[in-house]
Design a protein around this nucleic acid. Structure first.
Lengths: 372, 372
DNA sequence: GGTGGGGCTTGCAACGTTGCAAACGGCGTG
DNA sequence: CACGCCGTTTGCAACGTTGCAAGCCCCACC
């Protein structure tokens, strides 16, 4: 009697068959089995069929992915690192849009997408999942420069493309990373200039988190200067320049920070901001969900939008029907561009830097300052 | 002089360091390095620190995922197989909702999610990506029973949970798969009964694809009987029973098939259906996007909804503001339940079967039949 | 002082695959 | 008839890690 079929165990435990078992069953060498799957043309049709028959009899469905990538050094997957919980990320329309763009570029290559979990609750703690993900390259989406995830990701020494943040030059981000983003300063400047041109002088800004450990509340000059999140930092700087160019002192502008980018967070921050600076007539929110929260808060206070309060959002991620004046940025294109840059790096090219265009989209949430 | 640091090559090519290189640098054995990372408590604090220092000097950031999973048999990732292009999947609110539920359950375990690409254009062709994905288990989302993807997925012999379709009992789906779904017949029955109770007698149905190779157009009894997609098959059957229970012959009900579940597809199908059966006063759409397309088509024909035409959707996936009467199903919960079932299978339990509840949600798109 | 035990560390082997170069055999040509 | 070439097949080794059992050393106890 022959040895047990399948890579038998001393215990007689039957494991899943491998190339060796198939080879034995087909009466060929393991190399030939490998060839049948990986270079079909180099094998005789007859032999190929014999091997495939043996494989299907044994229930062998192709090489084990782990063994294959150990040996070949390729996994056929791209990793996407999103700062928030996966569940939250799928809630964020901007993130979903970005992922669509990633898919646009990854699908044709038959590359899988690995969404790597990274709790915010675990900021500070070592994130093991990121080191365990079997991927050929990494897409880092809007991380904060001092986030330990950045170090953990970069430590993998994989081809990496950073989206939006940390900006090139931020600590830890090597020259070798690719980068895709927008001109945050210019975009924010356009938003504020729009408000100023409508006659507004008493501005408020609803910011995103300025650092990994930041919490909601008023933002002073010191914490603005210390911001490690390059996206809000750049936008605040652009807003400041535009305000000052219009003769509005930045110290007169109330800046409030939101913990995360969602409607509720924006609503709470708006109440805080308007309590603190009651005369505010225009608000620049650094994301659309936050802007929608601002609109809701305004309604709760009996303020009409845009009659009493003008609001500008950012991203243009909300469905158009929401009538929000906002800064449009090509989110899907961003995902596509980032993925294409990563694919080029996988092919051996250098990491590239891409800055995508933005534009102000005027809808119904802003209006000229009403004569007081 | 010592041998090259790092797993040197004869060519002097410096590769990424592995446990062996770190062990050599720290003057310990590879096993100890492995222990430092995998069982820190079993190693002396002093030795641990020495090893970690050597590791960081060499730029070693932990075990290679491929080698680790080859050796350990675990990948730390769950695969999600969606039939459509990734980009399209992220467009589908129901799919995104489902993925959120998956994340809810996968996040706490620090499991990554691998979204496996599977073009519809490649239906029929062997999908290599599915065999290459390094995952511990598979979630099959709404596949059609005769889809080659089902065979490719099941061939992996991994713990698998099927969502919605193929239903248990469909060809190829083994007893060992877990299953999570709803009672399609009852749900569809509730929708049709609602319309009938409003007095409607001339019904139309906008169906989803009945098989992998189906194309848009009128559906006759034969193709209904031959449907390999268990979701629309079950719903059509439920609709038929409810109609017949109300004394409406199923042959009088126009059934139109949509290629995919989106607004445009629903719009086109509605025009076709109303051209064919002009007297129709109520439409049951098997998904919300299709229902929204029906509403748009109605508007284009000058029909008021619900005045001239009542519409019921399915899923309750559209934002509530859309005012659609629909069948609610707990999509997010579905993702969560499926993932939890998969986790239990990974822990050695049997595959389970879960049927989640649905309910009719009456909003503004249905109304009593207007007196003619 | 000898022996037993416990806590650390290590050697070995195997996880399943594939690239490479060598071996093989058949056929056409000189 | 011999040689050489080409198309196929094969043997070998290594990819990097980790579980296991054995070995080591030191301390405590008798």
């Amino acid at each position: 009697m022959d040895a047990a079929i399948g890579t038998g165990d001393a215990d007689g435990v039957r494991r899943r068959p491998g190339v060796v078992a198939v080879a034995r069953a087909a009466g060929v060498s393991p190399s030939t089995v490998s060839n049948v799957y990986n270079r079909p043309h180099v094998v005789t049709a007859q032999l190929r069929e014999r091997v495939l028959r043996a494989a299907s009899e044994l229930g062998y469905a192709g090489a084990d992915p782990a063994a294959r990538s150990l040996r070949s050094g390729r996994t056929g997957a791209l990793g996407v690192v999103l700062r928030e919980r996966l569940a939250y990320s799928f809630d964020d329309p901007a993130a979903v849009c970005f992922l669509q763009g990633v898919s646009d570029a990854a699908d044709p290559q038959q590359l899988a997408l690995v969404i790597v979990p990274a709790y915010p609750e675990q900021a500070g703690a070592f994130s093991p999942a990121i080191g365990r993900a079997a991927v050929d390259g990494l897409l880092l989406y809007s991380l904060v420069a001092d986030d330990p995830l950045v170090e953990a990701s970069l430590g993998r020494r994989l081809p990496t493309v950073v989206i939006d943040s940390p900006a090139p030059g931020d600590l830890g981000v090597t020259e070798r990373c690719g980068f895709v983003g927008i001109d945050e300063r210019a975009a924010a400047g356009a938003a504020v200039t729009h408000l100023v041109e409508l006659g507004h002088r008493r501005l408020g800004v609803l910011s995103l988190r300025l650092s990994a450990d930041a919490h909601a509340g008023a933002v002073d000059a010191a914490s603005q200067a210390a911001a490690t999140a390059s996206v809000p930092r750049g936008r605040l700087e652009g807003a400041r320049r535009a305000a000052e160019a219009a003769g509005i002192g930045w110290s007169s502008v109330a800046v409030e920070q939101c913990q995360i980018s969602d409607v509720e967070s924006g609503r709470a921050a708006t109440h805080a901001l308007l309590d603190r600076a009651p005369g505010t007539t225009a608000i620049f929110a650094l994301s659309d969900p936050i802007a929608l929260g601002a609109r809701r808060a305004a309604a709760e206070r009996g303020l009409s939008v845009p009659g009493d309060l003008s609001i500008v959002g950012f991203d243009d991620s909300a469905p158009e029907a929401d009538g929000l004046t906002t800064i449009h940025q090509p989110l899907r294109e961003k995902g596509r561009a980032a993925t294409e840059a990563l694919l080029r790096m996988l092919a051996g090219e250098e990491g590239s830097r891409t800055v995508l265009p933005t534009r102000l989209v005027v809808r119904g949430s802003t209006a000229p300052l009403a004569a007081a």
